[in-house]
Nucleic acid binder design. Structure first.
Lengths: 208, 208
DNA sequence: GATTGAAGATACGGCAGCGTAGCTTAAACT
DNA sequence: AGTTTAAGCTACGCTGCCGTATCTTCAATC
């Protein structure tokens, strides 16, 4: 929050400058919201001049788009050991970790205003959500289905969304991300039952 | 969308005027977003003068707050016949019906910008979500738990949220509300399994 | 070390929303 | 009918952001 660096006497160029601008626009949209995102605000926060922004982009939204684009799509989960429950929790924890990042808040603003900025929303889905997997638990579920531990016919679009949906709902209601205990509840009480494992049946009873 | 009524030559007062203003602010926030909500915009759409707005409220947000406040909390579901599955679908359909309303879109804008306008978000939850029940399926689940048809211990906060969470997720992803077929999938594949009723077990096998 | 190109600073007219003031006029009340 | 109240206009100076132009200055390149 003490970002308002003075001219710093070194003149940044190329990638160094771009990085600062991208960080600035993400911070700016998180603070002011997409509706109040402005070239002057971005410039001020990045410690650069409006001119330098207009040299590359023509609107604050395009600056944001660039920043989102530049966010490297991270690698997806590796369903490691033979531990369905643990892998599901880890998958959701990956989602939660991302939700803490600055770009996640920006993503939220975009989704909320998608009616006003359809291109932005589309770019967000194409460049961030889909490459990232989007469905974190799905990877895990498929893995164990291939191993014959759960019935593949149970892995429907709805079932693949249960975990993520509950994480989002929890974040929406409480305005904080679920901790590990909550993730465990979600997995135990909602995801696992949907693929035929308990709450009342022990795991081992799933595939006799 | 042809709201821009000319002065109409009759001068509205009191409740009649208030109603028009409330409708205007809801439409305005749906169209421009909460971040771009403005007194002038509301006034123009309501066909009134800025002066009349400032006479009662001091910011566009307070006008919106008033409009939300004035939205009567609607009655909740009556878990009617002896049909758990049908009642669950009906409960979710109630949610979906609300999500089509103009105030729902306004509510979405507020939730999205809750960081910027905490009072608005709080008012929304206190005056709209909580009185409305907030949890649509919960009412139904409790009803059948009292009748001994499902195990009360299974009705946890997580389980009570499954249906609503999936409806929201679907709306977020596709930007349209789920139809009845989708609601049925949600109930069959996610909600019912969580309260111990198959996908693989028939309903009747739930309480032997 | 000279050249070139982009970064940075400053200034501009234009527009939109702000919040207030002063006034006219229609509607409600007595 | 006369009075009171609020709705409806218009206009004001102020501010923030717009997009552009101009000029200086630093940094990379040759």
């Amino acid at each position: 929050m003490t970002e308002h660096e003075r001219p710093a006497r070194t003149r940044r160029r190329g990638e160094e400058l771009l990085t600062a601008i991208r960080a600035a626009v993400l911070a700016e949209v998180a603070e002011t919201g997409l509706g109040r995102l402005t070239m002057e605000g971005i410039a001020k926060r990045a410690g650069t001049a409006k001119t330098s922004l207009y040299r590359r982009w023509s609107s604050p939204q395009e600056v944001l788009l660039d920043a989102i684009h530049a966010e490297h799509p991270q690698e997806t989960v590796s369903p490691g050991s033979d531990d369905l429950r643990g892998d599901l929790i880890r998958a959701l924890r990956q989602l939660v970790d991302w939700m803490r990042s600055p770009s996640a808040e920006a993503a939220g603003s975009i989704v909320a205003e998608r009616v006003r900025h359809p291109e932005l929303a589309r770019a967000l889905y194409e460049r961030v959500f889909e490459p990232r997997g989007g469905r974190f638990t799905l990877t895990v579920l498929r893995h164990y289905a291939e191993q014959g531990r759960i019935d593949p016919r149970l892995i429907t679009p709805v079932v693949a969304d249960i975990g993520e949906a509950l994480v989002f709902k929890y974040a929406m209601d409480t305005h904080q991300v679920p901790d590990d205990a909550k993730l465990a509840e979600i997995v135990d009480q909602a995801v696992l039952p949907a693929v035929g494992i308990g709450p009342d049946r022990p795991e081992s009873a799933a595939k006799p």
